[in-house]
Amino acid sequence: MIAQLQKDLIEYAKSIGVDKIGFTHASPFQELKNRLKRQQELNYQSGFEESDIELRTEPHRLLEGAESIIAIALAYPSKMEEAPTGKKGARRGIFARASWGIDYHVAVRERLQLIEEWLRERVPNVTLKSMVDTGELVDRAVAERAGIGWSGKNCSIITPEFGSYVYLGEMITNIPFQPDNPIENECGDCRLCLDVCPTGALVEAGQLNSKRCVAFLTQTKDFLPDEFRAKIGNRIYGCDTCQTVCPKNKGKINWIHDEFKPDPELAKPLLQPLLNISNKEFKAKFGPMSGSWRGKKPIQRNAIIALAHFKEEAAVPDLIEILKKDERPVMRGTAAWAIGKIGGPLAEEALLAAREKESDSDVLAEIEKGLLLLEV
């Protein structure tokens, strides 16, 4: 009976747009527990994840009577059609591929909810607990053990069919499904992802210092540390470098789900309009994307840094207005640094005037950095 249910579930999952489904037992993730403890000792965790290692590695703590975990994966595109090109006077930023289209949390959760309903109709007294990304379990560890893909050196799950461009979700259940076997790691001697990581966040194969990862840094809300400002380029949310260089992703375009196909004007937005966008406009325009979850502040800060990266003189008047009037010290200070980085005839006068009026010590420090950059 369980075998037939499992077979029928696999077919149903495909019918609702699940690209891969796998099953594993609900035993503790002991090796993962050791790795997570080591991460905490090294202070490599981002702070966004669940802090309780026991909850992250022991499914029975999350669902009494847990027997199995169902893992699912949805593929997302690696390329966009008709991608716009930035140019002088109209520079563009880039959202990481995982933020293209609608918020994947919504899309994966919808599939999991449908599977929950399907199981409840067929199994009396079934118990279930689903999660996507923000849940306690580590999605990648579940997917690896359930045979969805192997855990690559870049800390992503890599599938033979879709590369690492997959969203993951899982469901703990008291149904004793037959576990799938993990698949063989095919990274071999390749270390491209380790070698090209912009900030050296990939410390070694399978170990990430999250605090140095560009994907993490673009989501922070404070001043971006100096050493990383030149590293993020025009990325305004996330980073794909360790995926785009991966040979296993070559040719994996994944134009499968319309909901994940990007609007080019959102995935590669013009930078200057972001500087003055209101909360209401931001939510209306970018709200459906997963990259909006931290609000507009990190996006605006990153847009300022991107304009400095391009040395976009056309943006200096807007940056001066931010320096003069924005109530947020991070915006004023980042704008001051960017004005110095870009330079031009308006820069020195604007920075000197701001220095006379500014009272925030962090902003004053950024103004000084800007003035020093003008001398370079």
Rank of each mutant, 00 (worst) to 15 (best):
V376S: 14
Q243F: 07
N185Q: 03
K261E: 14
E11Q: 14
N302V: 02
G65D: 07
T199L: 11
L202Q: 05
D139N: 08
W100V: 09
C242K: 12
V108A: 09
P176E: 08
L36W: 00
A284T: 06
V363P: 07
A143Q: 09
T199I: 10
P298H: 05
A306N: 00
R61N: 05
A284Y: 05
K283V: 10
V166C: 09
D258E: 15
S164H: 06
L128H: 06
G101K: 06
F162K: 04
S164Q: 07
T57H: 01
K33T: 04
I183S: 03
G251D: 13
L42P: 00
K252M: 14
R355S: 10
P345W: 05
C213T: 09
L364F: 10
K311S: 07
G65E: 10
A13S: 15
I299L: 13
A71M: 10
E67K: 15
L217D: 14
N43W: 02
V363Y: 07
K211L: 15
F310I: 02
E227A: 02
E327M: 02
E281C: 04
P198Y: 11
I94Y: 09
E184Y: 01
N254R: 02
D180C: 11
W118C: 09
D258M: 03
E67M: 14
E41Y: 01
E375M: 11
E49R: 10
V245S: 10
A230C: 08
E161M: 04
L266A: 08
A96I: 10
K33A: 14
G22Q: 02
F177D: 08
V203N: 06
Y167T: 02
E327Y: 04
G206V: 11
E67L: 11
I72M: 08
K280P: 01
F48E: 12
E259F: 13
P269R: 11
C239H: 07
N174G: 08
S46M: 04
P329N: 01
G238S: 12
